[in-house]
Write a protein that binds this DNA or RNA. Sequence first.
RNA 1: UGUCCCGUAGUGUAACUGGCAACACGUCUGAUUUUGAUUCAGAAGAGUCCAGGUUCGAGCCCUGGCGGGACAACCA
Length: 555
Amino acid sequence: MGKDKPSNFLFDIISSDLKSGKHAGRVLTRFPPEPNGYLHIGHAKAICLNFGLAESFGGKTNLRFDDTNPVTEKTEYVESIRNDISWLGFGWAGEYYTSDYFETLFSYAIQLIEKGLAYVDDSTPEEIASGKGTPTEAGLPSPYRNRGIAENLDLLQRMRKGEYKDGEKVLRAKIDMASPNMHLRDPIVYRIKHASHHRTGDEWCIYPMYDFAHGQSDSIEHITHSICTLEFEIHRPLYDWFIESLEIYPSQQYEFARLNLNYTVMSKRKLLELVEGNHVSGWDDPRMPTISGLRRRGYTPESIRHFCDMVGVARREHVIDIGQLEFAIREDLNIKAQRAMVVMDPIKLVIQNYPDGETESLQSENNPNAENKGGFRDLTFSKELWIERADFMETPSRKFHRLAPGQHVRLKSAFIVRCESFSKNEKGEISEVVCTYFPESKSGSDTSGIKAKGVIHWVSTMQAIPVEIRLYDRLFREEFPLKGTADFKESLNPDSLRIIERALAEPFLSQTRPGDHFQFLRTGYFCTDPDSVDGKPVFNRTVGLRDAWSRQQKQ
RNA sequence: UGUCCCGUAGUGUAACUGGCAACACGUCUGAUUUUGAUUCAGAAGAGUCCAGGUUCGAGCCCUGGCGGGACAACCA
């Protein structure tokens, strides 16, 4: 399945580069996260592309932390990023940090000055901003634009030595203040930041800007294809300008459209806002589109990689329906997940013709869709069972295939029962259903000749264990949370988490470990949460089963 | 009144150097089913933003519109 990945424009570019011998038959890509937040599903797409493309051409991929802004970056993020990439199943050739290149980058700056292509500007940030002009009006040259080379060199060294305060001076490339591309209007190359860096500590007080770091870092590593998202497209002329001016290895940048999903947000800044505002429990909250959130939710690496293959790559902006992601995980878990029966909202079912105090052992397949049905496990059957409240109706609609007075139903992997009567509590809720069972209708050896229209799940009251279930729904109730409201947090779905404190489950679930995947029969896929403690497992709903019945009900 | 990018079924992605638009998800039927799941079979749904042009022939090439997006952080 999915053996042939559909072709895409990046694949085509690399193919033809290889054919033309452009990089001497070499393919080296890189994944360049800034360690200022956790990776999300959008990054997964970039990871799959960079690693996947390289892999399909026998090339390699570097991991490079783009750490040029010490005030937002942390080692905690470095670790989570490394962990997430490995978890997705990718291994990187070299692990680098842009900060490893600070000294080289500084020497590049000197070269630029010596070539008359950079100058130190004493203007204030406001002056620089206004001097840039607008997209439709040319900018004005800075009064410091024509400083001599020697003076520039001296000033840059003194910037490095820490003789100036933040913002007092910057180094700018001398390109073209009238360029229609704003990024070419003498972009800032180095700025002063007296801030401690997560790796270089206080060694530096000047830091290179993205544009002066990224392309050169690619070049230093001899990256052949530098793949990034569309918003950097307009930076490409600058990327090329630095490489040409410095006469260094000509890495090439290619852009693709970033992944967007409906009913969620996909920017690190916004995700950080959700974390810091306690709208979620953390970066790995199962409702987050982060890789760690998806992992905790129960998504598998395979499902995420397959999803990334399915959505493809192109240069046009798009929004993928979250249903596509759900399809990917259902498809994977269908063949992998152990089945179990868990009653979420229990009512008691009493079998009037079953002997008091007796039990019998029945067998049920662990996964009917896996090879050899995944083996079998034992279930304990008895006179009193828990069944789902929703599986009984006092006055059923015509198409209701479950329990109702006089109606037959099969208890999964057990017997057919017929509903004889029921009782209600003071509040008028169903409290108990009384049935008779047909001993000769035992699953696998049914000779009763009785046909049951439906099958329901159950668990024996004496053996059942209590478990906590966390039912997750989409984090936002708006398809496009950013549209229409001033604050995207107003679109948060108040019902994105519903906790069932005490569901009743098959006893073998007491043995589960965090990260285990299950399909709770007729309900959905679930994953054991790290919050589980001995005697009280906690399960996150990854995704519900497809449900033609409820869809039909809604219509 | 600027520059650049993009425009193919509801969604997303294909269509080798032009040869009567394909795949996936979704939707709808029907069959099977001890999960109203899965599986299987089938159907509907675009004539490729619009208008011209080149060509025997254009989603692919050209021109002009229209529509969407990006660009003025000492962020990446």
